[in-house]
């Protein structure tokens, strides 16, 4: 009986070795397989593929005040976006002008966007009733000077198509 037990133990010893080696070989098959037949590479060669790199349509790059071909935006200075923003990243500065009918009107002077505090929650875009805002595809935000991250979104000389001057 003792002999039988010993034989069994020796058998277990070698079985253990066999199982272990088999499991290692199975793992090596995976890596070796990829060595022979290259797997799908998800790495993007970024600066080289700049020309072909296209972000998804919904990609949240940086905030943009939409201007049409006549350099007109549709911000009516309602300030909803600034109120919706959790971080205070948006400042809408307006000026009062005398309208054609003699009443004073608020028109956009500067639409200031603080990229440095923006957390891209996306609350401002659907908040705008005039659909004046969107996120563009720009993702290269790196600058050497923090003050460059404070941006004026309305282009120089642009006018508003919603509020007539």
């Amino acid at each position: 009986m003792a002999l039988l037990k010993t034989i069994k133990e020796v058998g277990n010893y070698f079985n253990e070795i066999y199982d272990g080696v088999a499991s290692l070989v199975r793992g090596m098959k995976v890596t070796g397989g990829y060595f022979i037949k290259r797997g799908q590479i998800v790495t993007q060669k970024y600066p080289e593929n700049r020309a072909t790199l296209k972000m998804f349509d919904n990609f949240k790059g940086e905030l943009q005040l939409i201007h049409d071909e006549n350099n007109q935006h549709s911000c009516n200075v309602c300030n909803t976006c600034a109120r919706k923003c959790p971080n205070g990243s948006i400042e809408v500065i307006y000026k009062k002008v005398e309208g054609a009918d003699g009443r004073s009107k608020k028109i956009l002077d500067k639409y200031i966007y603080h990229l440095e505090t923006c957390s891209f929650c996306g609350l401002c875009v659907p908040a705008c009733d005039e659909h004046a805002l969107r996120f563009d595809q720009e993702f290269e935000h790196a600058v050497f000077d923090k003050s460059k991250l404070t941006k004026v979104l309305n282009k120089p000389g642009s006018t508003c198509k919603v509020v007539k001057e």
Binding site: F56, N58, F59, S119, F120, G122
Partner: peptide, 24 residues
Amino acid sequence: FEETTGTRLIQSFITPGGLMADVH
């Protein structure tokens, strides 16, 4: 995630009352 929500890691897509946008 990116195709629908616009961001990859922190999406802020679900909001009280529904979703920020429809799916792609």
